[in-house]
């Protein structure tokens, strides 16, 4: 119990710290950028104001700039802004976006939660599908590989994992888009008009991202699962079971898989959560896929600090909660883990 409370407190500390750090890093400079952009826009506008002396022009610009700065709260120092964001989030008060708006369901709303709520389904759709596919392919591969280390399947898994780790997702995305969308016209490309209510359309559109992510994830996942399984195969209880004449199939299902389950679950869940929350900014950009990663980019490009901060808050919370849940799961699934 004690470790649980400690972990929960840690979670909170990390969450607050991460949120505050991101808010602190972004609010100051981003505010400056926003002010400069608005000032430039005003300086363009003032050219249309005929009959003003240069002096009056400057006043015209400064007046409006000042109102803008005050209305947006940009005159407050960064630490006040950051603190305000953090406290608001801890009180579950939704922030208001400065520039981004929601596109589909709450059209035009500036509530950050609505904006995020619109994007999350895209991320979940993409990454859950590819996680399931990855597991379906990786686990059998890993099993085969671990049963005969150094065999053909094992070498395939090892090579695949090398590419899976050293290849940027977004690069394979570029290659696949060219081949499958523009050259062979099999799947829809990033620029395709998609009717999100039409299942065939959606499938055609998500095929490429899913294939790309899955192919690259399989290598790494299978390799790690193989290592876990290999360790399990070498454990005493497996040797004993085999010596007792337990059929190989039962050894695999009853002993090996059960013992190897917790770490494998961890790998799958972690990579899922990590990619849903922030792993795929550039990939989503290349695929023009409106998920959470893309939202990060949109927020950065439009200097939308509240979106950035709340997004960080929610993604970090998700990540930490997963870690927390896995910790608990681990302790109950695996009696060997000490609750220290």
């Amino acid at each position: 119990m004690r470790w649980l409370v400690i972990k929960a407190v840690n979670l909170l500390i990390v969450l607050v710290a991460v949120t505050f750090i991101v808010a602190a890093m972004t609010s100051g400079p981003m505010a400056q950028i926003q002010i400069n952009q608005y000032k430039q826009a005003l300086q363009q506008q003032v050219k249309n104001q005929l009959g003003l002396t240069p002096q009056e022009r400057m006043e015209w610009v400064n007046e409006r700039l000042q109102t803008y700065i005050e209305s947006q709260g940009l005159n407050k120092p960064w630490y006040i802004l950051s603190l305000k964001y953090t406290i608001d989030l801890l009180k579950f008060t939704d922030l208001n976006s400065t520039t981004l708006t929601s596109m589909y369901w709450h059209q035009g709303s500036r509530k950050v939660l609505y904006i995020i709520g619109e994007r999350i389904p895209f991320s979940i759709l993409l990454f859950t599908t590819s996680s399931i596919l990855t597991l379906l392919f990786a686990l059998p591969l890993a099993l085969y590989a671990a049963r005969s280390p150094g065999g053909r399947v094992d070498n395939t898994v090892i090579t695949w994992s090398v590419f899976g780790v050293s290849m940027p997702w977004w690069w394979l995305a570029m290659v696949f888009i060219y081949l499958f969308a523009y050259k062979w016209h099999i799947f829809a490309g990033p620029g395709a008009q998609t009717d999100w209510t039409n299942i065939v359309d959606v499938l055609r559109r998500m095929a490429l991202p899913v294939i790309t992510v899955t192919i690259l994830s399989i290598g790494d996942s299978a390799f790690r699962m193989r290592n876990i399984l290999l360790d399990t195969f070498n454990e005493d209880f497996v040797t004993v079971a085999r010596a007792k004449g337990v059929p190989e199939h039962d050894v695999l299902m009853k002993h090996v898989l059960r013992a190897a389950a917790p770490p494998i679950v961890t790998i799958v869940l972690f990579s899922l959560v990590l990619s849903v929350v922030n792993g795929a900014i550039i990939t989503e950009l290349v695929f023009n896929w409106f998920g959470m990663g893309r939202l990060y980019w949109d927020a950065i490009e439009s200097n939308d600090v509240p979106v950035l901060v709340e997004l960080t808050y929610i993604t970090t919370l998700l990540y930490l909660l997963t870690r927390f849940a896995l910790d608990i799961l681990y302790t109950y699934l695996d009696p060997r883990v000490k609750r220290a």
């Binding site: 990390v14 710290a17 750090i21 991101v22 990060y296 950065i300």
Partner: peptide
Amino acid sequence: ADIVNSLPFLPILIVL
């Protein structure tokens, strides 16, 4: 270290 490791590093890198 845990805090630094929990930072969403790519977004922060992009912002920086």
